[in-house]
């Protein structure tokens, strides 16, 4: 039963663009899947190690600008640009991570906000490279396709990314490395005193999680074709990854995906209903506070426990890695 229903869901996800009546809904689908992939990669760090980053949009923006600039300015083929820019961002994240994960809790959150703010200023200030506050235009690598077909293509590219990130999270969560990350989340000094090299574990999680977000950023640049530093490097954009993960449940593989399926379409809906206002900023903040205060475990909190005890190999709780 489980397998059948899972297969049906996957089939539905693959067929979605052909099931909806217009290209706008395909476009909304691309955004939602992109958010789901980003929130799940955020959750490699946030869910497993417990380190909450509000600045992951920095890696999205760097991935987007990296890919965009290599394609637009140097005329690189897009797969190469995407690969090089993603690898560069992951390396940068590892270096930032070495410094950032030295602090915990609220201090870590503030460091990540500072990171994205610095990137924002850099992108706006370095006019000759980024075009400053004027959006950077990235020529579409698929010029032969019309807008609708491009949405269709990128829907499936983002879906492939989402699948890859889910697989990565699942593999890590059931590995010994993932067990070490969970120990860090529960009690970092205790983990360290038992011999877990906590600093190295955290840096790797930070870089891995940044890597997938950077990939999403690169795909976004190729898809959207126009990069606005104020959007891609915004704290609110970073906060939406946090909101989705916490709302869905960050101890669970599918939590961030579920959160994205709720928050992203809602965001699009309000954009249409109310137009371009600042309301979504406030709404994101208020929702985040409400979730943290009233349902810190998210929707997928502890439903799984009994079921888990029956099936899993006794070492793990279902809420910590079972799918």
């Amino acid at each position: 039963m489980r397998i059948v229903s899972s297969l049906l869901l996957v089939a539905a996800a693959l067929a979605y663009p052909w099931l909806v009546p217009n290209y706008y809904l395909v476009y909304a689908g691309v955004l939602t899947v992109m958010y789901a992939a980003m929130a799940t990669s955020w959750n490699i760090l946030g869910g497993l190690s417990g380190y909450v980053s509000l600045g992951h949009s920095a890696f999205f923006g760097l991935g987007a600008y990296g890919t965009g600039l290599l394609v637009a300015r140097l005329g690189w083929p897009w797969p190469l640009a995407l690969g090089v820019s993603t690898a560069g961002v992951a390396l940068f994240a590892a270096l930032v991570g070495v410094a950032a994960v030295r602090v915990r809790g609220a201090s870590f959150v503030i460091v990540t906000i500072a990171l994205v703010s610095a990137m924002n200023l850099l992108a706006q200030g370095w006019r000759s490279l980024t075009g400053g506050s004027v959006a950077l235009q990235v020529p579409s690598p698929f010029a032969g396709l019309h807008r609708g077909q491009t949405h269709l293509l990128f829907y499936h590219l983002f879906l492939a990314l989402l699948a890859a990130v889910l697989l990565a999270w699942w593999l890590i969560s059931r590995s010994r490395y993932g067990s070490g990350l969970r120990a860090i989340r529960e009690d970092e000094d205790k983990a360290e005193s038992l011999g877990v090299p906590t600093a190295a574990y955290k840096v790797v999680a930070f870089a891995l999680s940044a890597l997938f977000v950077a990939l999403a950023g690169g795909l976004y640049a190729l898809w959207f074709g126009s990069l606005d530093p104020i959007f891609v490097f915004s704290v609110v954009f970073g906060a939406s990854m946090v909101l989705m993960s916490l709302l869905g449940g960050r101890r669970h593989l599918l939590g961030p995906l579920l959160g994205a399926l709720i928050v992203a379409p809602a965001g699009e809906y309000f954009l249409i209903a109310l137009g371009e206002t600042q309301i979504h900023l406030t709404a994101t903040g208020v929702l985040l506070v409400l979730v943290v205060l009233f349902m810190p475990e998210g929707i997928l909190a502890r439903r799984w426990r009994r079921d888990h005890n029956r099936r899993a190999p006794q070492v793990l709780r279902r809420s910590d890695g079972g799918a």
């Binding site: 010994r176 067990s179 070490g180 969970r182 120990a183 038992l194 877990v196 793990l316 709780r317």
Partner: peptide
């Protein structure tokens, strides 16, 4: 100090060196 949200068995395995 133990890892409260991990199972007893998983608590035990954290200390195995990798």
């Amino acid at each position: 100090r133990i890892f409260p949200r991990m199972t007893v068995l998983e608590n035990m395995l954290v200390a195995v060196r990798r």
